[in-house]
Design a protein around this nucleic acid. Sequence first.
DNA 1: GCAATCACTTAGCAAAGGGTCC
DNA 2: GGACCCTTTGCTAAGTGATTGC
Length: 739
Amino acid sequence: MSGDHTHNDSQIESGSRVNDSHKHKDKHKDKEHRHKDHKKDKEREKSKYSNSEHKDSSEKKHRVKQKDGLDRHKDKEKRKEEKIRSFDGKPKKENGFASPPRVKSEPDNDGFYLSPKHEKSLKRERDEDDSEFKPKKIKVENDKKAKKRKPDDDEDIKPKKKTKDKKNAAADGKKKAKKEPEEKWKWWEEERYTDGSKWRFLEHKGPVFAPPYDPLPSNVKFYYDGKSFKLGEKAEEVATFFAKMLEHEYTTKDIFRKNFFKDWRKEMTSEEKGKITDLTKCDFSEMSEYFKAQSEARKQMSKEEKLKIKEENERLLQEYGFCVMDNHKERIANFRIEPPGLFRGRGDHPKMGMLKRRIRPEDIIINCSKDSVHPKPPPGTKWKEVRHDNKVTWLVSWTENIQGSIKYIMLNPSSRIKGEKDWQKYETARRLKKCVDRIRAQYREDWKSKEMRIRQRSLALRAGNEKEEGETADTVGCCSLRVEHISLYPEKDGQEYVVEFDFLGKDSIRYYNKVPVEKRVFKNLQLFMENKQPEDDLFDRLNTSILNKHLQELMDGLTAKVFRTYNASITLQQQLKELTSPEENIPAKILSYNRANRAVAILCNHQRAPPKTFEKSMQNLQGKIDAKKDQLSDAKRELKSAKADAKVRRDEKSKKAVESKKKAVQRIEEQLMKLEVQATDREENKQIALGTSKLNYLDPRISVAWCKKWGIPVEKIYNKTQREKFAWAIDMAEEDYEF
DNA sequence: GCAATCACTTAGCAAAGGGTCC
DNA sequence: GGACCCTTTGCTAAGTGATTGC
């Protein structure tokens, strides 16, 4: 959790107080009532999606508008104007999507930024051919207009194989060129849609369904009360789900077992139901052994068999893993439908163990262009619906039976549609950077407000939506924080006004922290806790909707989430500046990078369970370090004797020997240093997950700029997938990029 | 005005992949 | 070439926030 309590200035007496404890009681009653109603609603089957006709006609209108060049022209003019305004002397580097133009930089005007809509219009026009809806053919990626990169950008950077210019291609030889004939499409150099539509043309093959149930061989038996019992196919399938999880802690939990048993019985025939009445009498061990043996056999497969499977997967990927969106072939993130199984909620989830049912074509809604070749349902089946909604990005959706929520098939993070959104997210966070001081000053003022509502929102800058009791695990965010989650200490560990937080956040990850705050914040919290029970909401006058509405007023596009992105990115940038020493070698610099990344992960509370093999792997590494140390002392000894030898002999040969021994020592020292750095890094990373912040919160341009500045190959920071996701940043960020 | 719904992002875990070492 | 171990990828749950509709 990244709150926004980074100040420590003067303490001001808290103002008058409004007693409104009765009101929050009302709120609670209300909650209960809502909860019941909602449950009923959920049980009703919804048939909302059938009015596609209406959508079609509105789409037609929309298209007509699109084809009209007028609007586009107006946009272009506006953009030109804005571009000129934004060039207040400083050239903007981020390909025209630089810091949104400010009216003026005085603090007073800080909130005065252009809306996201305006932001979009800052971009250049899309290619003419993009305004056509039919894909004439899949574009052979060959971006002639793409600006030429500086040669030094390209060195050492593998993904550039895809984007490399002809000169490089020639130098690299023809083999590779043959392998990767396509150039990567630089969508970030093209115009974005400004009308809220996400695409003009979308064609795909639909989802891949889970394979049908393959019954157990007759020798693998299920036992009830010590006797073998032949289950029917339906009950057997569900039993195998449990058997596969037998090793897992889940199956020992009461709720899990209870939920599983209840749902399992629903799948039984009346005979089975009559017989199987007690889960403790069920013996799944033979099934479990069978699956273990199967997975072992899979590992032992011959190369050829493995290759065959790999090829089959590749074929599926090629057929179903891509779609055509607006003339471009784009990778789909999850083209497989989630297979049936037992629901594994996180934390103390009340629904864990419930049966996640098999999804059939009749459950599937397809979204694609009207004029595309529609995906075909498996023979003898029908889709639930085929719609043509270009205001959304998903290709396939279905409703899941555990929570009744909708699941989607969407595009890969490397796609244009995801990349644009990601880029925009960081631009919003950068806008916040420019007015964060003003916003902070304002909410500090709000702490004095007479209105409880205003005081509360001023304290809470992180979201935390309401959740339904009994539907999910009990986790909270800022707005849903309860009295029991904080403790106030006028003095603790030598510090004044300490707030101790202890609660379960997203994914039931514990957040525990002691934060010294200003007196006024402290007093306010005391006030909010007055006359409340531990289970009452701390911020009873606040919810995410009120909070975000308020934030919107402070800055266009500002939501609680933006603070998280901003805090994370700004921290990375600061930490990198602080931690990177110019004289360090590359491994040491990378350690500094990881430490900066780690600071962010800690800030965002991105924890992980220490890997099971952690201790062992540390031991191994230590062993390597010890061996390297021995090797080093040997090498040093050898060098010493070589030097002595050279002193006596004074010939070329022995001089050379000294040189080569020197080099050996150097090499070993470097290797040792690398290992030691690795050990430090690993140790420090034991319980911290870097990936989440790297992937979701850190403006990649900061990292790319840092790499360029210090001559670090970008592959040392981002792996292949990450480079694909951040291709836009890798292409556009220069070494002097400032978040 | 507000709950419900929908769309989309963020999250950690576990299996798979693949490099290294013997 | 097989075991081992780290990294990557896939999976899907769990959030946020905007929109819808009563």
